[in-house]
């Protein structure tokens, strides 16, 4: 009974999320919007690369950078999306109070709303990668993809980001505009320190040490190994040194690390969310509005 009810909450909140994301315009414009934004973001890096190299994109580092940038959309959008649910419902639509007292599992509501964010982001990531393969010689060969590694790393990586988003969602109960800054700040830390668009070995030693503790670093490595194993081999061969700083780490170790991250984040996030929820109720912040 509880499972059926939770699934219904998940489905209905996903549908609500879809309406909120997409029904402000017609489907064609929404599709254009969903394609233009990620492609433009990616083209910035492409042009930067072309300015320096003169346009040679059939290169291992280009594919490394391109795929990392495309996959990072999940980190930025999902992390932001999960937290934004609280902020948007409370500040903008002023419906959080009603949602909160409804007879349903609040976590399922947030997860349902986030699921649609993941779906929309997945479309953007897919289009970006397709554009890279077709127009820019990004080296992804469907026959050489390590599908089990890619699928498992995607599931674990997205799970850890969603769970982290839940903790930040809890924090947004207690903050006003700060939740946007906290999200973007954390996503920014991952962008710089997790080897998203450049290998972590270029970072100063202290920063590289931090990056080795971040799950996104391992997620990026696992996704690349799954999606473009040839590129990772070529990058190591042409550089002549351990350019990614991860050559000695096995696939199994990476997956194990991601699995542990999901477990640790899950415990921490539920804890943070419950504490924040308790404080928010105690201080009357569930229906708080700050005009943002």
């Amino acid at each position: 009974m509880a499972v059926t009810n939770n699934l219904k909450v998940f489905k209905d909140s996903a549908w609500l999320g879809w309406q909120m994301e997409a029904n402000w315009t017609d489907p064609f414009l929404f599709l254009t919007y969903s394609i233009v934004k990620p492609i433009a973001g990616t083209l910035i890096l492409v042009l930067m690369y072309i300015v320096v190299t003169g346009g040679e994109t059939a290169n291992a580092f280009f594919s490394y950078m391109y795929v990392g940038n495309a996959m990072y959309m999940f980190v930025a959008e999902v992390l932001f999306g999960v937290t934004w649910v609280i902020h948007d419902d409370r500040e903008h639509y002023m419906t959080l109070k009603q949602v909160y007292i409804a007879p349903m599992n609040f976590y399922m509501y947030i997860m349902g709303r986030s699921a649609i964010k993941i779906a929309i982001t997945s479309f953007g990531v897919f289009i970006t990668i397709l554009f890279g393969v077709v127009a820019l010689d990004v080296a992804i060969d469907l026959t050489s993809i390590d599908w089990p590694l890619l699928a498992l790393s995607l599931v674990l990586g997205l799970a850890s980001i969603c769970i982290l988003g839940l903790a930040l969602g809890g924090v947004s109960f207690l903050t006003a505009k700060h939740s946007i800054g906290i999200n973007e700040g954390l996503a920014g830390v991952f962008y710089v320190l997790s080897g998203v668009v450049f290998p972590i070995t270029i970072l100063p030693t202290w920063a590289e040490s931090i990056s080795r503790f971040l799950p996104v670093t391992y997620w990026m490595e696992a996704v690349r190994r799954g999606m473009e194993p040839g590129v990772m081999r070529e990058l190591a061969d042409t550089s002549g040194y351990d350019v990614t700083g991860m050559s000695n780490v096995s696939d199994l170790t990476i997956m194990l690390y991601l699995l542990i991250s999901v477990g640790v984040f899950f415990a921490l996030s539920i804890g943070v969310f419950r504490i924040a929820d308790y404080i928010a109720r105690k201080k009357g912040k569930i229906d708080w509005t700050t005009a943002y």
Partner: peptide, 27 residues
């Protein structure tokens, strides 16, 4: 605190892109 966020957040993008140029040994 909002002001601090507004100053610091662009620095992450700056750092990311600057390291890309560094890795490419750019001017």
């Amino acid at each position: 605190s909002w002001f601090i966020f507004d100053v610091i957040l662009p620095l992450f993008t700056i750092a990311g892109y600057a390291y890309v140029y560094k890795f490419l040994d750019a001017r």
